[in-house]
Amino acid sequence: MAETMVEEAAPAPERAQENGREVILSVRGLKKHFPIMSGFILQRRVGEVRAVDGLDFDVFKGETLGLVGESGCGKSTTGRTILQLYRPTEGNVVFEGEDLTQIKGERMRAIRRRMQIIFQDPFASLNPRMTVGNIIAEPLRIHNIMSRREQKDYVGDLMEKVGLNPYFVNRYPHEFSGGQRQRIGIARSLALEPSFIVADEPISALDVSIQAQVVNLLEDLQNQLNLTYLFIAHDLSMVRHICDRVAVMYLGKIVELGNTDDVYDNPQHPYTQSLLSAVPVPDPEVELQRQRIILGGDVPNPATPPIGCNFNTRCPVRFGLCHEEPDPILEEIRPGHFVACHRTN
């Protein structure tokens, strides 16, 4: 592919290292609160939804970090706040050595080339009035890269790379199936040769027989292009398959973070334990013998989080402290395995 195309967006000053691995993205104290407004003419702020409420984590170069949790836990907001599609309420997002929360304008535009997003809904995220070729080339035009003629060849290359026939370059999104549309979205996100991609539930809307195709494609592209993924999902089986590390979110906070195998084989937080036990396994023999932890109730409203630990209203193993002490913070209980729970901390 045209190697001259993207000049390094930032001559990254010094890049953080952790245990010998290069940190591509570092999130510290990230918060995103959405105001709740009330009143007809004189709007006033009557509260806030704490969608993301204090996140600290690093993403290593070349890895896939999974972000899992139930709907409303803030996982998608986290992805968008990292990319500065929402400006954070508080906290820092350091990407390739630069704090994104401090920059804007042209500098921001230049950095956006290095980080892209794949959306969940392959029907809503593609403009129905644009041809596939124009959709994939749009980022090139916005960033004013390449002549029209160069773009044409380049788009053909991209389409082949994601498993689409370049012959279909002049067709419209409605002429494609869900899986193929998701491939178009992936090609668009690759157009600017990013190093980091937020994949926001990229397979949830796809049929079961198509999911494996898209997951295999994402893995192949990662190997070829040395991509880093933040993989947002609620399908815990798929996350185990695709992710090197996983962060479990509940009510805007990370409750457990670690290597995927550690978290899945030896979950420490009671929420992680019940979440994993709720996932159905496609094997009737296993299902017959499984003991489930069935959580009572629903996820609390993030506008009015519970007093004490966020999880204490549903926790099967809560004790006195959980209601009295403030929400526990994320602590490292073993190298690389973090848990936020009064029981373990």
Binding site: S177, D207, S209, A212, V215, N216, L236, S237, H241, P282
Partner: peptide, 24 residues
Amino acid sequence: LGLLSSLPRLDLKDQRLVQIEGQP
């Protein structure tokens, strides 16, 4: 058979997913 082999399993270790080619 294709569906069963294409599913990742929570309780089993990692391997490349076997995909069903083509479209419905």
